[in-house]
Structure formats: structure tokens, C-alpha cells
């Protein structure tokens, strides 16, 4: 018989650096999961993305076992890295504080394709560019499909 799922936990933790402190400790410990085992597995599987923020979806079962899926770093995090900014503008559309170009948007869109509900690279790029604009970042130049 399939194991019964008792809950899902969605965290974002730095690659290779999970430890029992918050958020991992309180989020998983209260569900009776062995946090130390989660950290060992997560860190081993993410050590090549050391220090990068990684979304992780943890499925918790009734026998206190768990499984997890690691996603690629969020587009917003990658955009900020691309723009080499300390932070995005808090006033979108009025106070542009940084720039990215379409090559960077394309690279991020390709990286995020598996996690986005997009069937084409163009739609993924449109989503990433939308996030960039919401953060107050300007996307320099013309989109490839406008040429």
C-alpha cells in the first residue's frame, strides 16, 4: 500500500549549507522528521550549488519518512545576481535601479524552464522579463522576437 502523505513543506535553503537551525529545524522538526538526515541528503545533493538559494519541496509521510525535490534558483535571485545589485527597486516602473540584457534573461529562462509552466523558451523569457520589471530592473534592448 502506498504511504500516506501527511504534508508538504516548501523551503528555500542555500545549497550545501542546510543546518538544523531555522527554517529547517522548526519546519521539519515539528513534523517528526529526522532533520539531521534531511540536512545530510540536501547538502550532499546541492554541494555543487554551494551558497545558492534553492527552492526545495519536501513531502512528509505518515511514517515520518520524507522525499524532496530541489528546484533551480528563483528567477528573481538570478536576476539580482545578473544585475549585480544590492536589491531591486521597491518602486517598480518609476525608479529603475538596474539593468539586465536579453542574453541574461534567456540564460535564466533556460535554467528555469523545468520549473515554469511554459512550453516555449519565448514564454519563459517573457515571464522572467516580467519578474525583472516588477523588481524595478530594466531589460536592455529589444526582445529577440521583436527583431
Amino acid at each position: 500500500m502506498a504511504k500516506e502523505i501527511t504534508g508538504f513543506v516548501k523551503l528555500q535553503v542555500k545549497g550545501g549549507q542546510a543546518n538544523p537551525a531555522p527554517p529547517v529545524g522548526p519546519a521539519l522538526g515539528s513534523k517528526g522528521i529526522n532533520i539531521m538526515e534531511f540536512c545530510k541528503q540536501f547538502n550532499a545533493r546541492t554541494q555543487d550549488k554551494m551558497g545558492k538559494v534553492l527552492p526545495v519541496l519536501i513531502t512528509v509521510y505518515s511514517d515520518k519518512s520524507f522525499e524532496f525535490v530541489i528546484k533551480t534558483p528563483p528567477a528573481a535571485v538570478q536576476l539580482l545576481e545578473a544585475a549585480k545589485l544590492q536589491s531591486g527597486s521597491k518602486e517598480p516602473n518609476r525608479n529603475k535601479v538596474g539593468k539586465v540584457n536579453w542574453n541574461q534573461v534567456e540564460a535564466i529562462a533556460k535554467d528555469k524552464m523545468p520549473d515554469l509552466n511554459c512550453f516555449t523558451l519565448e514564454s519563459a523569457m517573457r515571464m522572467v522579463a516580467g519578474t525583472a520589471r516588477s523588481m524595478g530592473l530594466t531589460v536592455d534592448g529589444k526582445a529577440p522576437w521583436e527583431n
Partner: peptide, 17 residues
């Protein structure tokens, strides 16, 4: 998503969504 990116820049270690 945007907040997580900005908080990451401020040194926050982890997030629960």
C-alpha cells in the same frame, strides 16, 4: 519571489513559503 531575492541579499539564510 522578489522578497526572497531581496532578503537573500540582506543575509537571510532560509525561507519557508
Amino acid at each position: 519571489e522578489i522578497l526572497i531575492a531581496q532578503l537573500n541579499e540582506l543575509g537571510y539564510e532560509g525561507f519557508e513559503e
